[in-house]
Amino acid sequence: MSRSGHLGEFLRSRRARLQPADVGLITPPGHRRVAGLRREELAQLAGVSVSYYTRLEQNHSVNASDGVLDALATALRLDDHERAHLRELAAPRPRQRKRPPVERVNGLTRELLRSLEGVPALVVGRRTDVLAWNPLGHALLAGHIDPTAPERPGDRPNLVRMLFLDPHTRELYVDWDRKARGLVASLRLRAGRHPDDALLASLVGELSVKCPEFVAMWGDHRVRPCEGDSFQLHHPLVGELTITQQSLQLNHSPEQSIVVVTTEEATGSADTLELLRQLVPADRPGKSADAQPIPPRDAADA
C-alpha cells in the first residue's frame, strides 16, 4: 500500500476512536450510523473544507500543509508520537518499493555489545530482526534458537515474528497481549518511516496471513516507540522474573538499536537472572559455530 493509503487508514482509525462529546460537540439524541466523529465534524474542528478532508482520507490528495496537519492532529487529539507518524505518512516522498541492502552490525556496535558482558543485550534492526546478541541475551529471550542464527541474514530471528508465531516466545511473556500490542505499535512507526521497504511490507503481509491476533492489533493503528518497559517472564529454565527492557538508538547506526535487559537490584528477579547467568558458560560466544541452544529444563535435569 502507498504512503497515502496508510494516511487514509490512519485518519479513519483516529477519527473512529473519538466521540462528539470528547471534543465538545453537541449532537441531537438518537442512533449515529458512524462510529466516532463524522468527516464533516472533524473538518469543522480542523478548519478545513469537508471536500478537502475527504480527499485526504480517500487518498486522492497529498502534500497537505504543515498548518493543516497540525490542525488535524489537534482536532484528533494525537499525542507526540502520533503527530510525528501523521507527518511521516503525509510527507510527499513517492518512491518505488525496492529490496533494501542487508543490515550489518559494525565494529563499534559489536564492541559495545561485548562490553555488556553479564547483562542480557541484543542488537535489533529496522524490521525488528535480531542482528546480534550476547550469550545472556540469547539465553534469556531465545534459548531454544540456534545462537549463531543472527550471523546469517536468511536465518535471523525477528522479534515480531517470534512473538506471534513462535510458541516458546509466546509462553515467555506472562502478559503476552501487552507486549504484543507494544511491539506492533513500534512496527507501525517503522512502516510509516519506510513505506518503500519491501522486506518490512513482506513481514506485515506474512503475519497478516498467519495470525488473526496480529491483524486486529495492526488494524488498531496505534503508534509508539519501544523505548522502555517492564515485563514479567516465565523462563523455561529459571522460572519467574520481572525485567525491564530498554531500547537505545545507536547514533552511528540510526536504523539499529541495542536492547538492554535489567532487573531491580536486590530482588528475587535479580537472583533469578544471576542463576541464569551461572547456567550460561562464560566462554560461550554468541557467534560460535559449535554453540548449541540451551536445552529446556527437563532435558537439562536429565
Rank of each mutant, 00 (worst) to 15 (best):
A121R: 07
A121L: 07
L122C: 14
V124L: 05
V124S: 01
G125N: 04
R126K: 14
D129P: 00
D129M: 12
V130L: 14
L131M: 12
A132T: 01
P135G: 12
L136Y: 01
L136I: 04
G137T: 01
L140T: 06
L141R: 00
A142C: 11
G143R: 05
G143W: 02
I145G: 07
D146W: 01
T148Y: 03
A149H: 09
A149Y: 03
P150D: 04
P150F: 03
E151D: 11
R152P: 15
R152V: 13
G154F: 08
G154L: 08
D155E: 10
P157Y: 00
L159I: 09
L159V: 09
L163Y: 02
F164V: 07
D166Q: 07
H168V: 13
R170H: 11
E171L: 06
L172E: 07
L172H: 02
Y173G: 00
W176K: 07
W176Y: 07
K179H: 12
R181W: 15
L183E: 08
A185E: 02
A185R: 00
A185V: 08
S186E: 05
S186M: 10
R190L: 13
R190F: 10
A191H: 14
A191D: 15
G192C: 11
P195A: 08
D197M: 06
A198R: 12
L199M: 15
L200Y: 00
L200T: 10
A201W: 09
S202N: 15
S202P: 15
L203V: 10
G205F: 02
S208D: 06
S208C: 12
S208P: 02
V209F: 15
K210H: 08
K210P: 02
C211R: 15
C211Y: 12
C211Q: 15
F214K: 00
V215L: 11
V215D: 00
M217P: 01
W218A: 13
W218M: 14
W218K: 08
G219R: 12
